[in-house]
């Protein structure tokens, strides 16, 4: 599946675990700080929203870690942003809907949006639109496992697991056990004809 000649492993199974745990601490610290800040966030109202599909699994892991850190597991939702993508009718995006599952009201809550790889920023833009259509969160923070740069929109992550410099002809694949991988792994490899993720 992975062509070893052109692929390099950015993160292995343990790296991913450690990074998610670290992100949980960072989120918690930020919320505690913000509680006393001008927004007056209420950490008990925190909700995690993962972007399908990689971000969704990471959202559940982050929530689990936050449960350890905060003593309470925050609510988790999953966002399908297909209908909000700007490339779904140009044929570039995968148009199959898997469905949004957010069973709580997003109004008045701090939300941590979770994605696996931050690249052009278009996915996050679409996710923000989708999220804001569902209500009015007090604030939205962004947590990503990997930030590979090459932004096309003015979007930045609030919490970054690993930042790495890449080129456009490379792709970053995140393999997670939830998706059937034998172990978590983040791989950077040269993509030939496909637009990289």
């Amino acid at each position: 599946m992975v062509e070893s000649t052109t692929a390099r492993v950015l993160m292995d199974h343990d790296d991913v675990r450690r990074v998610v745990a670290r992100l949980a601490h960072e989120v918690n610290d930020a919320l505690q700080a913000a509680q006393r800040g001008p927004l007056g966030l209420d950490p008990s109202k925190l909700a995690i929203v993962g972007i399908r599909t990689g971000g969704a699994h990471l959202a559940f892991r982050l929530a689990e870690q936050l449960g350890i850190v905060m003593g309470r597991v925050p609510e988790v939702g999953v966002l399908d942003i297909t209908l909000y993508r700007d490339d779904v009718l140009s044929g570039a995006a995968m148009p199959i809907l898997k469905g949004t599952e957010i069973d709580f009201d997003v109004d008045g809550r701090p939300i941590v949006l979770v994605d696996d790889v931050l690249f052009t920023g278009r996915t996050v833009r679409a996710a923000l639109d989708a999220l804001l259509d569902m209500g009015r969160p007090t604030c939205v923070l962004l947590a990503v496992l990997v930030d590979r740069g090459l932004r096309e929109l003015p979007i930045a992550a609030s919490f970054t697991g690993r930042a790495v410099e890449t080129t456009r002809d490379e792709r970053v694949d995140v393999h997670l056990v939830e998706e059937g991988a034998t172990a978590d792994q983040v791989v950077v490899r040269v993509a030939r004809d496909r637009r990289a993720r």
Partner: peptide, 27 residues
């Protein structure tokens, strides 16, 4: 099955307060 599954996703959209998605904007 594809049509019915896709419709299931739109039931969720229709249950929102803002029952609108930008998928076919400009079409």
């Amino acid at each position: 099955i594809l049509i019915l599954d896709t419709a299931q996703s739109f039931v969720e959209v229709n249950s929102r307060q803002l029952k609108k998605v930008p998928a076919l904007r400009g079409r």
